[in-house]
Simulated assay, not measured.
Amino acid sequence: MEDRLAKAQFGAWVGIVGNLALAAAKLTIGLVAESRALIADAAHSASDVVGSVAVLIGLRAAERPPDEDHPYGHGKAESIAAIIVAVLLVVVGFEIGYKSIQSMLVPVAAPGMLAIWAAVLSMAVKEWMYRYKYNLGKKLNSQSLIANALEHRSDVFSSFAALVGIGGAVLGEYLGVGWMVYLDPVAGVFVSLLVLKMAYKILKESIHNTLDHVLHSEETVPMVQTVEAVPGVIRIDDLRAREHGHYVIVDVKVSVDPQITVEQGHTIGKQVKQELMNRFERVRDVFVHINPYDSVFPFSSGTADHEERDVIH
């Protein structure tokens, strides 16, 4: 757990430091070269800094142990951090679009060549950051890191849009085609649309995972097989694996011989829990309900419980 947190936090710090440097460089060059598209891209990178800070806080909160108010742990803190990232992107997206449209209503000049090189450098750095964080997020099963990585990928696209707009504006001034100088603010509008699209994608996925998402039946097949192999388990009446951020909480109901003692049933339940937690790294806790086996009236996930002999926490 501590190793996972250390790696995830390092990834978040990479984003914070990298985005601070990029935002400062693009803003400075954008102002000097008078490029609306590059300034918009700098604002996007600045929002990524706030997003990375939110991810860092979420990662630390998610690893806090369960307490009286949060018996299932704090794993959903990562999903909340991802939602914060998405909301920040929405605000920045609208701001970029608004300022870019405003700049179209007044005479503009083509930006300087320095802005082109800044956009190219930004694309290269952001693509590296995306690949690093996305792979790390997948490895650590961290939704907030993956969301942060997608932020970096949207920055790659926005820098490319800025590059096209800046290059078109510079070319237009060189060829004497007046309308082409407006390609720079047009690129700024396109950047804002990319940011809003990415924000929607992150927000949709984060809300879905926050609302007690359970693993699909095909994903729980190995868990079912593990429980079925435990001596004394006659039948699995129900098994639900709920995602809490990067880890899973399992609720399982099993039928055992109704003639055995309560202590024997309790022992079977403890073994079910141990097997699931030992075999599956993502399983943080298991709640086992022991039911008396009834071949005439089998249990199902959609029916009310009959008498339960024991509950293993």
Rank of each mutant, 00 (worst) to 15 (best):
A8I: 08
A8C: 05
Q9T: 11
Q9M: 14
F10P: 06
G11I: 09
A12D: 09
G15C: 05
G18C: 00
A24E: 12
A25W: 11
A25D: 07
T28D: 07
G30K: 13
G30I: 07
G30V: 08
L31I: 14
A33S: 14
E34I: 11
E34F: 04
L38W: 04
D41H: 08
A43C: 01
H44E: 07
D48A: 03
V53R: 13
A54F: 15
L59F: 02
L59D: 02
E63R: 12
E68F: 10
P71H: 02
P71D: 03
H74T: 03
H74M: 07
G75W: 06
G75C: 13
K76P: 02
E78P: 04
E78D: 06
I80F: 01
A81V: 10
V87D: 10
L88F: 15
V90I: 15
V91Q: 10
V92W: 14
I96Y: 11
S100E: 11
Q102V: 07
S103A: 15
S103P: 09
L105H: 07
L105M: 15
V106K: 14
A109C: 05
A110F: 09
M113G: 12
I116M: 09
I116T: 13
A118W: 00
M123P: 07
M123E: 06
M123N: 07
E127T: 06
W128R: 11
M129A: 06
Y132I: 09
L140M: 12
N141A: 14
S142V: 12
L145K: 11
L145H: 04
A147G: 05
R153A: 10
S154I: 00
F157A: 14
V170T: 05
V170Y: 04
G172I: 08
G172S: 10
E173K: 14
E173R: 15
V177S: 10
G178I: 04
Y182R: 10
Y182V: 06
P185E: 03
F190G: 13
F190V: 15
S192N: 06
L193Q: 11
L194G: 07
L194R: 06
L196T: 11
K197V: 14
A199C: 13
K201A: 10
K204N: 13
K204I: 05
E205I: 05
T210Q: 00
L211A: 00
S217Y: 00
E219W: 00
E219V: 02
T220H: 03
V221I: 15
V224Y: 05
V227Y: 02
A229Y: 06
P231Q: 11
V233N: 12
R235S: 05
L239K: 09
L239H: 09
L239Y: 07
R240C: 08
A241N: 04
R242H: 15
G245D: 08
H246E: 07
V254R: 09
V254Y: 08
V256C: 12
D257R: 03
D257P: 03
P258L: 12
E263P: 03
Q264C: 04
G265T: 13
T267N: 00
I268N: 01
K270D: 06
K270Q: 14
E275H: 01
L276N: 09
L276A: 05
M277V: 00
M277D: 00
N278Q: 03
N278V: 03
N278C: 05
R282L: 13
D285P: 08
D285Q: 15
F287Y: 09
H289T: 02
Y293T: 03
P298K: 13
F299M: 03
F299I: 02
S300Y: 02
S301Y: 04
G302L: 09
A304S: 07
D305P: 02
I312S: 01
